Simulated scan of single mutants.
Amino acid sequence: MTSPAGVPVPPAPRPPARGAWARVRHGALPFGSLLLALALWQLLAASGTWSETLVPPPARVWDAFVDVSTTHDGVRGYNGTYLIEHLGISLRRIAIGAGVGIALGVLFGLLMGTVGWMRSLFEPWITFLRTLPPLAYFSLLVIWLGIDEEPKVTLLAMAAFPPVAVSTTTAVAAVPTSLVEAARALGASRWDVVRDVVVPSALPETLTGVRLAVGVAYSSLVAAELVNGLPGIGGMVKDAANYNNTPVVLVGIIAIGVSGLIIDGLLLRLERAVVPWRGRA
């Protein structure tokens, strides 16, 4: 850039980048909210309004976390199993159960979204299942399948199935007719239309349904492990609650919540990688 007299003029200084501050704020706000929650928790426990059995201070919960994560006084973790092992067993149940439910939900969603009579046939049943709380049919699953892994995995699959089926059906039905007709005009078969037009168009909403399904499966975890749930993080919470062991209950709840946040974050990253055009087109 030059002045009217032909003398070069140095460029104006750029304003400081806002990206660094945005990143710092993005990380500082959750950390600050965590510190605030811990401070309020400590004040509530120290106020004496409730006994430590009901509201233990953070230090006692930390001690319980250390106890269930290590071997102490000859006792290995909680009920002979470390916390990470309890969590791993529950995550395996969720992976199998929610995985089956998600796969069936995607399949039924594609079928109901493309075949009108199948939607009329199955949608009322899926809505009926979606409105049922897990405890409403878990006892029936125990009667049918016993008290081993089968009723737990089946419950998680039944909890994860409706959100994916509903979101996929809605997304498939909302695919623009012009795209489908254009593909058919170019000679695409029915399978080609589903593979190249319907699935990519429905994928963003389907992935949202997958995230919801995993969340519903997580919220059903304790219910799934009510019977013969040890080892398992939900079973640990239930067993500790039977003995008013509030610190261990809180450790289990925090472990479920933190692992759920991590899994949801991974699913969100997967969604951004698979459908990068979402929100931009």
Rank of each mutant, 00 (worst) to 15 (best):
I126G: 01
M158R: 00
A45V: 03
F161I: 04
R278E: 15
P57C: 03
L35V: 11
R280W: 10
T169R: 00
W144C: 10
Y218V: 12
L44S: 14
L34Y: 09
E149V: 07
W117Q: 08
G109V: 01
R280K: 11
R119I: 06
S3Q: 05
D67H: 14
R93V: 00
W117S: 12
N242S: 12
V274N: 09
G187F: 01
V275F: 00
L179C: 00
T208D: 11
G232K: 10
P56S: 08
L87E: 02
D196S: 12
A12F: 07
D192I: 04
A12I: 08
L35K: 08
L107E: 04
V237R: 02
R92Y: 12
R23G: 11
R18S: 13
M236R: 00
P30R: 05
L141T: 00
L207P: 08
A98D: 00
T177N: 15
T49S: 15
L121N: 04
L43G: 15
L54R: 06
P11K: 05
V164G: 04
G209C: 05
Y243C: 08
G77K: 09
F138M: 06
R195E: 01
A160Y: 04
M1K: 10
G109D: 04
T2Q: 15
W50D: 08
R269S: 13
V258P: 09
R278Y: 09
P247I: 06
R190P: 11
D192G: 14
S120P: 00
D264R: 03
I233C: 10
Y82A: 14
V227H: 07
T49C: 12
I89H: 13
A46T: 09
D192C: 06
N242M: 14
T127M: 15
A39Q: 05
V7L: 13
L132T: 02
T53F: 13
P11D: 10
V227Q: 05
F122G: 02
V115E: 07
W41A: 11
G229V: 06
A185C: 09
Y218S: 06
A98Q: 01
F108H: 02
A37K: 10
W191N: 06
G215S: 08
R190K: 12
T154G: 06
R76I: 03
R130F: 13
M118Q: 06
A39D: 04
V275H: 00
P204D: 07
V61P: 01
L186G: 10
T49A: 15
N245I: 08
L140A: 08
W50S: 14
E85V: 06
G116D: 14
R18H: 14
L91G: 05
E271N: 11
G234Y: 03
W144Q: 02
S3T: 13
G101W: 13
S47C: 08
L38F: 07
A240F: 11
A59I: 12
P11S: 03
V75S: 12
A159Q: 01
I263V: 15
P134G: 13
G109Y: 07
H86N: 02
P4C: 07
A281M: 10
L87N: 01
D239Y: 09
G109T: 07
S220L: 05
I126R: 01
L121W: 02
G265P: 10
V193G: 15
D73Q: 09
A59R: 05
L34F: 12
S220Y: 02
T49M: 14
G235S: 04
W21A: 13
G48D: 08
S219M: 11
V251Q: 14
Y243N: 10
H72P: 08
A95N: 11
I94C: 12
T53N: 11
G146F: 12
R130I: 05
A173W: 01
P11W: 11
